[in-house]
Nucleic acid binder design. Structure first.
Lengths: 303, 303
DNA sequence: TGCATTAATTGTCTAGGACAAACTTAAAAG
DNA sequence: CTTTTAAGTTTGTCCTAGACAATTAATGCA
């Protein structure tokens, strides 16, 4: 069973490192060092791809590539997330319950996980379920992914099951002619949808009319959709994983594309530490999201 | 309101054309012809981005870039999908009902669409709903997207609402220890999830235990997930939009990664016209998917 | 210790060349 | 006249190697 070797495009797909970066690292650091096929093209052996994935994970956790690449493989495993390190054993009563949920994921017990989540939803109600269960649990899963204690496929399963749960809960809420009309989506390089669903649940609970467009909408298309749906607000979500430096530019571009009377809100882990942007409302917490909605309504009354 | 200009990365995001291709076209065909900033870097004006998006759409519909780029913008609008052309007015009684659903999408009437779909689901039952409503409707939407009569954001909304409906329906089915255990996912460049949900509905109806991992799983990760979940079958979905030539290679790679006793099934619009692949079962229709399940069960009995 | 300036790090962009795979067209054979 | 084979186009992806700006770290100075 000869393990196949990956060409540069396959490595880009599987690691998330761009071709440019892969070639640059090879030139600068001497790693990766792929074989070449008869055509002079790079062929990455599986173990190098594996190491690249590990490096990428640690980079997302805040480490710097130069150090990581210089470090031998064995030691790499010893690097752990800064975030995880910074939070040693603050196991509140609720924290341990979250750990139980996390454990179900790691045991690949989808049914058990779904049942436990359903129970919590019934007990807490949708709003608190989102704020006190889904959000922190998502955070914990992200942490665990960074420090390697949760596999990618486990994270995928968690996301998939949670998406279902949330969508089901949202479907159970009343709908119809409500206001404001909020268009929910994300930009092309942002595939994470959980944040959008969480905020949709909150907005829907507060009586807003949500128009969920899914993720990855081109900017010009968002503008068109907002007009076509006569949206009052466009709400975008950026996950922590989204490259922060790109966000201000994107929001400014979108602000120019949108009609001025349409509000632009941006939330999610990616906008936590962002400088204010003209014409854009940054939602740094669930509370601020809800109060943004309240403020919008107040602002409508005098007009 | 100065319309912003896009750098090459933004254009890649918004059009789906790689940087390499954008630069190549500029060199070969003289289009696009972006301005340059003080740094010598490309700045694409919005109208060129728009034209590129149109060209990309027509390419996906089967046209060739050389012709398209040579054609003036006004005439481009006249190009229509080959598929759409080939099927002139076969409006069966069911076809017109589908058209009504499509019309609701184009009117951006989410609530009306959801209600109409719910009704059809109740009337047809899940299996026929998937086969006779969702599948053909998805096809029609794809067609309409190709010939430009449906906007991207309309297609997104359709997808989002349909996903919700299907997931809700699936959630209503019994679950628990059933067999076979089927792991459902797609490869990293395949983000389309509707096909997976449709087949999940059918498999779940037939009593299989489905493990939905969402889309875009790296190959090595699929292998790990299959072992961890003790899956009997790994089922992949490829949409019509997926580059066909890449599929055989991907499947062969994955076949090598998977333990031999785990079956590998591939379905979706992308595998319709594919040559058989050793160790991979190609599901070219919903019927073949169901019979694959039956066959698997038969094969288990003697052992 | 806190802040400003310099230095190192790192990603993205640019240019043009090469080549193989996919598709078309032309020619030959049945 | 149709089918198959061969030659020719088209097109995407990969290659090298250089430049620069933006971020992060480190130094000097108040």
């Amino acid at each position: 069973m000869n393990i196949p070797s990956f060409n540069i495009a396959a490595v880009e797909r599987d690691t998330g490192l761009s071709k440019d970066v892969l070639r640059m690292w090879e030139r600068r650091y001497g790693f990766p060092q792929p074989d070449r096929d008869s055509n002079g093209e790079r062929c990455y052996p599986a173990d190098q791809v594996e190491r690249l994935r590990l490096i990428k994970r640690l980079m997302d956790a805040g480490h710097r590539p130069g150090k990581l690449i210089a470090t031998p493989v064995e030691e790499l495993a010893g690097f752990v997330s800064r975030r995880a390190k910074a939070r040693p054993g603050n196991e509140s009563s609720d924290g341990s319950e979250l750990s139980e949920l996390l454990a179900l994921i790691k045991q690949h017990d989808s049914n058990g996980f779904q049942q436990a989540m359903q129970q919590r939803l019934a007990r807490q109600g949708l709003q608190r379920f989102v704020q006190d269960t889904i959000a922190p649990l998502t955070f914990r899963v992200g942490e665990a992914w960074e420090d390697g204690s949760v596999e990618v496929f486990e994270e995928h399963l968690f996301t998939e099951l949670t998406k279902r749960l949330l969508r089901q809960a949202i479907a159970g809420l009343p709908s119809g002619q409500r206001s404001p009309r909020i268009l929910l989506t994300s930009v092309p390089d942002e595939p994470h949808v959980l944040g959008l669903l969480m905020v949709e649940a909150l907005f829907a609970l507060e009586g807003a009319e949500c128009i969920p467009l899914g993720t990855q909408m081109p900017l010009l298309e968002i503008g068109r959709a907002a007009s076509a749906h006569r949206a009052n607000v466009v709400a975008l979500s950026f996950s922590v994983a989204f490259p922060q430096r790109q966000i201000p530019g994107l929001l400014q571009q979108l602000r120019m594309v949108l009609a001025p009377e349409i509000e632009l809100w941006a939330g999610g882990g990616g906008v936590q530490r962002l400088a204010p942007i003209e014409g854009v409302l940054l939602l740094t917490s669930f509370e601020s999201a809800v109060s943004a909605l309240t403020d919008w309504r107040l602002a409508q009354v005098p007009a």
